[in-house]
Design a protein around this nucleic acid. Structure first.
Length: 468
RNA sequence: GGCGUGGUGCCCAAGUGGUCUAAGGGAGCGGUCUGCAAAACCGUUAUUCGCCGGUUCGAAUCCGGCCCACGCCUCCA
């Protein structure tokens, strides 16, 4: 089965062939740790997680690198405001980031290199660019990349630099550059930087914004690697600049497949810190939404489509996940029975194959979920009507475990061993009352349970308790 | 000014020339089941895919124009 990904460079779906047959090397742009990441940011990280899990599901080993940008204008600015050393300041948000990744069940990458740990590598790269005459030193001691030396500049974003209205929104006081579009490889130290500085052949300073990704991807993945991803806002200038630096320095192709994730929008507008229309994972959890519900919302739209974030979507996710939860609970019950199989279960594999094919087709999650829902529905029918055997129930459960290797949202745990005794007693009371047809008593017990936050359902074997 | 993306039912969301009188989910409504519920199942909610033209035997899907929304060209996932 071919895997196809939409490559931003060619703007079309291409059959995916990694450089080595069984290993995929991918670089995923990570957070700038100056604040809590918001769920718009996490949309990108979840897209990367789905990509990674899909590749693994389809049989590849994955080596993923995600950078942590822990030195830049904003981290310096905000650590100064907080009167906290940069490293201490950023650590807080690095920790928070990993905490959120864990909550959202995002698999860990193999490497999380921090920019501040790789300054020597960046300096080496800048040296090469200067030696090859792609970079120049300005009067203030900063080093810039000269895009006029790199004719391919703009090939990813399809930007023709001749046609840009430079000046309209570019600050003209960057007089020291040859051309306004030239970007910094190394920034000379200024007073605003405080004690954030590294020594370099060009004097005290710090790396430019883009160089870390070139240097660190090269270190961990090589000069050419398979996939590079990020939010679509990284496409220009960030990824364009990475290409320029890397390809100029190495004289070889930087990346084979570029994949970009669309925005999360709120009321039609991009969720961003500058607009202030953002929610963090912790905000939503504080409002009573679960990480699974958040994850479901973020995975359930195709990564190249804008996703409109609403609380209604979170509520829809809640209902959907509830459905799965009770489905798994029915399956778990069926597994415990000794019922004989009455039906053929070939269709389970058909559903698995459709799921797989959909994901292999540029991560078509909607198609994939359709077969997940379809398997749920078909199985539910069988659970209701003729009954299914324990073996088949197990087969279906295994299929869902397989789906979950990518989706990462299902909770298969059996409800609940940890029911408070008070709750269990109430349910027993109700059960006994029903047996003697004392429905008034039964209903009153049920009402009490509801008030305590529990739902009781009658099933052939007795009753089932669920938390609201 | 340049470049780009998208507009599909009440909401979310696939489909990108025929199997589409449009998958799937959520929600609503009707029903089966139930002491009543819940869960589950069945039925139902777009002859239509922003609007207007065109190409074609045939279009949601291709072409042209228009309207609307959003984004990039500056840090941003």
């Amino acid at each position: 089965m071919d895997i196809q990904f939409f490559d931003t460079m060619t703007r079309e779906k291409r059959v995916f062939n990694p450089m080595s047959p069984n290993v995929v090397k991918m670089y995923t742009c990570g957070p700038t740790v100056y604040n809590y990441a918001h769920i718009g940011n996490f949309r990108a990280y979840i897209f990367e997680d789905i990509l990674r899990r899909t590749l693994k599901y389809l049989g590849y080993n994955v080596t993923q690198v995600m950078n942590l940008t822990d030195v830049d204008d904003k981290t310096i600015r905000d650590s100064n405001v907080a009167k906290t050393p940069l490293k201490v300041y950023t650590k807080k948000y690095v920790d928070a980031f990993f905490e959120d990744l864990k909550r959202l069940n995002i698999e860990k990458a193999e490497f999380y290199p921090a920019a501040t740990d790789h300054v020597p590598e960046m300096i080496e790269l800048v040296k090469i660019l200067i030696d090859k005459n792609y970079a120049y030193k300005s009067e203030d001691g900063s080093i810039y990349f000269s895009i006029s030396k790199f004719p391919d500049y703009g090939k990813l974003a399809k930007i023709d630099m001749q046609n840009q209205r430079s000046g309209a929104r570019v600050n003209f006081d960057e007089y020291e550059k040859d051309s306004v579009a030239d970007f910094a490889l190394w920034k000379a130290w200024t007073a605003d930087d405080g004690d954030v500085a590294w020594d370099s052949p060009w004097g005290k300073g710090r790396p430019g914004w883009h160089i870390e990704c070139s240097a660190m991807s090269m270190k961990y993945l090589g000069k050419t690697f398979d996939i590079h991803t990020g939010g679509i806002d990284n496409m220009f200038p960030h990824h364009e600049d990475e290409i320029a630096q890397s390809e100029a320095a190495n004289s070889q192709k930087f990346v084979n497949y570029w994949m970009h994730c669309e925005y999360l929008v709120v009321n039609g507008q991009k969720m961003s810190k500058s607009l202030g229309n953002f929610y963090t994972v912790r905000d939503l959890i504080a409002q009573g939404y679960s990480p699974e519900e958040i994850r479901w919302v973020l995975i359930s739209a195709h990564y190249r489509k804008k996703l409109n974030f609403t609380f209604d979507a979170l509520k829809q996710a809640r209902e959907t996940l509830k459905g799965f939860k009770s489905f798994f609970s029915r399956l778990n019950e069926a597994v415990k029975t000794n019922k004989q199989s009455l039906v053929s279960f070939d269709f389970v594999n058909d559903h698995i194959n459709k799921f797989k094919e959909a994901m292999a087709d540029d991560l078509n999650i909607s198609e994939a979920l359709a077969s997940v829902f379809s398997l749920e529905k078909e199985t539910n029918k069988l659970l209701t009507a003729p009954g299914i055997g324990a073996t088949e129930a197990k087969t279906v459960l295994n299929a869902f475990t397989g789906f979950n290797a990518i989706l990462g949202v299902f909770d298969f745990s059996e409800e609940p061993d940890n029911v408070p005794s008070e709750i269990r007693e109430l349910a027993e009371t109700r059960h006994a009352a029903r047996k003697t047809k004392d429905f008034a008593k039964a209903d009153s017990a049920r009402n009490q349970l509801t008030e305590l936050g529990w739902i009781v359902e009658d099933i052939p074997a007795g009753f089932k308790l669920k938390k609201i």
